[in-house]
Simulated scan of single mutants.
Amino acid sequence: MSAPGTLWVVATPIGHLDDLTLRALRVLEEADAVLAEDTRHSKKLLAHHGIQTPLRSLHAHTPDAKIAALVEELAAGASFALVSDAGTPIVSDPGIRLVAAARERGLPVTTAPGPSAVLAALTLAGLRADRFRFVGFLPRSGGKRTAALDELAADPAAQVLFESPRRLGRLLTDLAPRLGERRLAVCRELTKLHEEVRRGTAAELAEAFAEGARGEITVVVEATDTPTQAEPEIADPDAFVRERRAAGDTPKQIAKALAAQSGLSRREAYARVVEVSQSED
């Protein structure tokens, strides 16, 4: 019976194609196949380094049957290099399913560590980050987004988020009343030609990026000694309620947010939500 192969979790460049360790190069060259989130994207990296290892796709929609088949190949002696589109796999990445399945089968899993957008942003931001939490992408709308924003603001640790260029302005606008003077850094196109790190409050950065941005975005929120509390800034409670209803929030969620940002009691806030809702239904 042949010895099982190894699943290598390989960190790849987040921008500059030369940011690949010598060990990672060797693993990519010697693996039986490279498992990639987007084979077209990873093909460019392999071609840049003259690597001809076959590419196979592994993404969020890969069926469970294919994951099981890959595990069987590993058990039979094949070795795979698992990569993401950029940076370290498993962080906001679908490869976790294969790693978990290989672990459960007792197969060798190891890593060739390297680039990470999270750590690169933290090192360049110049903001306090003795403790940090990786948030990833926030929910796009509804009560889950509201809850995630409130949770972020209430956590005194530094926060690291990913965001798409076209939604950056909205993210910063949503954070502004929650974070107050707590500083952020918008890190754009890290390690690339047009790398940019811009710092300021969420309100300042929301104005700077009102028209959106280009490239890959990582946002860092600095650590603080005390959680940030949203300041009472809602001038038009009825408009606020209508906006939150349109976003899909529940009456309870809207009332909680309204009370926190308007000075109304929870009971008064809920009554206002019911009143506005009845007038529109």
Rank of each mutant, 00 (worst) to 15 (best):
55 L>V: 07
99 V>R: 09
61 H>G: 07
96 I>E: 13
107 L>R: 12
44 K>G: 02
117 A>C: 00
106 G>P: 05
94 P>V: 07
41 H>R: 15
122 L>R: 08
108 P>M: 02
119 L>S: 15
39 T>F: 12
45 L>G: 03
47 A>N: 10
92 S>P: 12
117 A>F: 00
87 G>A: 07
37 E>H: 06
74 L>H: 10
46 L>E: 01
115 P>K: 02
85 D>F: 08
63 P>W: 13
43 K>R: 15
90 I>S: 08
116 S>F: 04
113 P>E: 13
42 S>M: 04
89 P>I: 13
117 A>D: 00
109 V>S: 07
101 A>N: 04
104 E>G: 15
84 S>W: 10
42 S>T: 14
33 A>T: 00
92 S>E: 12
85 D>T: 11
112 A>D: 05
101 A>Y: 06
122 L>C: 06
92 S>M: 12
97 R>F: 07
48 H>G: 01
102 A>N: 08
60 A>H: 09
85 D>C: 08
36 A>Q: 06
45 L>E: 02
84 S>G: 09
77 G>F: 09
39 T>Y: 14
83 V>W: 02
49 H>E: 03
75 A>C: 11
79 S>H: 08
33 A>N: 01
105 R>I: 00
63 P>V: 09
87 G>M: 05
52 Q>R: 15
113 P>M: 10
89 P>G: 09
64 D>T: 12
70 L>N: 02
96 I>S: 14
38 D>V: 07
77 G>C: 08
57 S>T: 06
111 T>N: 13
78 A>Y: 13
64 D>G: 13
70 L>V: 03
38 D>I: 07
81 A>R: 03
103 R>S: 13
105 R>D: 01
123 T>K: 07
67 I>N: 01
41 H>F: 10
75 A>Y: 10
33 A>V: 01
60 A>I: 02
49 H>Y: 01
97 R>T: 06
96 I>P: 01
73 E>T: 10
115 P>S: 03
102 A>H: 09
120 A>P: 04
98 L>Y: 03
91 V>L: 14
75 A>R: 14
113 P>S: 13
99 V>M: 03
101 A>H: 05
56 R>N: 00
61 H>L: 05
90 I>D: 02
122 L>A: 06
117 A>P: 00
38 D>Y: 05
89 P>F: 09
94 P>E: 02
106 G>E: 01
53 T>I: 00
86 A>S: 09
74 L>G: 09
39 T>G: 12
93 D>P: 11
82 L>R: 11
74 L>W: 08
34 V>A: 05
37 E>D: 09
72 E>L: 13
85 D>N: 07
67 I>V: 15
80 F>Y: 14
71 V>I: 11
46 L>P: 00
53 T>Y: 02
55 L>I: 07
124 L>S: 06
107 L>I: 06
55 L>D: 00
89 P>W: 03
100 A>P: 02
62 T>Q: 07
70 L>R: 05
41 H>L: 13
53 T>M: 00
41 H>Y: 12
81 A>G: 04
48 H>V: 03
103 R>C: 11
119 L>K: 08
104 E>V: 11
100 A>G: 09
82 L>F: 12
76 A>L: 11
52 Q>H: 15
42 S>I: 14
50 G>K: 00
108 P>I: 13
48 H>W: 11
117 A>R: 01
63 P>D: 15
36 A>C: 09
101 A>C: 07
116 S>L: 04
87 G>N: 04
124 L>Q: 04
63 P>I: 08
43 K>Q: 14
97 R>I: 05
108 P>N: 02
